[in-house]
């Protein structure tokens, strides 16, 4: 088993996935998009967040997102905006900050070829 690129983090007691990003990137994300795992990719929940297994390699990807994004989100049943709203409702966190964090996660996963996005319109 080949290990893979780790997704590094610094301690943050409030948000578990402190990737660096900016609001302009966030705005570029489409709220009516859904996200699905790429072919050959599986994911499961771990204490640190999500563990992705990519058949191509095979490779592992560790996403220290704690409980910010659940594995079911990658079934494509919930849109981006629905995810943001559900996280905000559950944790009472500011929408802008949640949106930034989620967008950074999704961009990272897209860049690594682990997920595909699709408009539901």
């Amino acid at each position: 088993m080949e290990s893979a690129g780790s997704i590094r983090s610094r301690p943050n007691t409030r948000f578990p996935a402190p990737w660096v990003g900016n609001r302009s990137e966030s705005k570029a994300m489409r709220s009516n998009f859904v996200y699905r795992l790429a072919g050959g990719v599986q994911v499961r929940r771990e204490e640190f967040g999500l563990l992705f297994y990519d058949y191509r390699g095979p490779r592992l990807h560790f996403l220290p997102s704690k409980d910010l994004v659940d594995v079911q989100f990658f079934d494509g049943q919930k849109t981006h905006s629905e995810l943001i709203e559900s996280i905000c409702a559950e944790h009472d966190w500011p929408k802008g900050l949640v949106s930034d964090k989620v967008n950074q996660i999704l961009e990272l996963l897209k860049t690594k070829g682990l997920i595909h996005e699709q408009s539901v319109c």
């Binding site: 771990e46 640190f48 563990l51 592992l60």
Partner: peptide, 16 residues
């Protein structure tokens, strides 16, 4: 390799 996550213990093996 993200040793920090592996060493804490995963919920199940990746490979058996």
């Amino acid at each position: 390799m993200s040793n920090q996550y592996v060493e804490r213990g995963l919920s199940a093996p990746v490979n058996v």
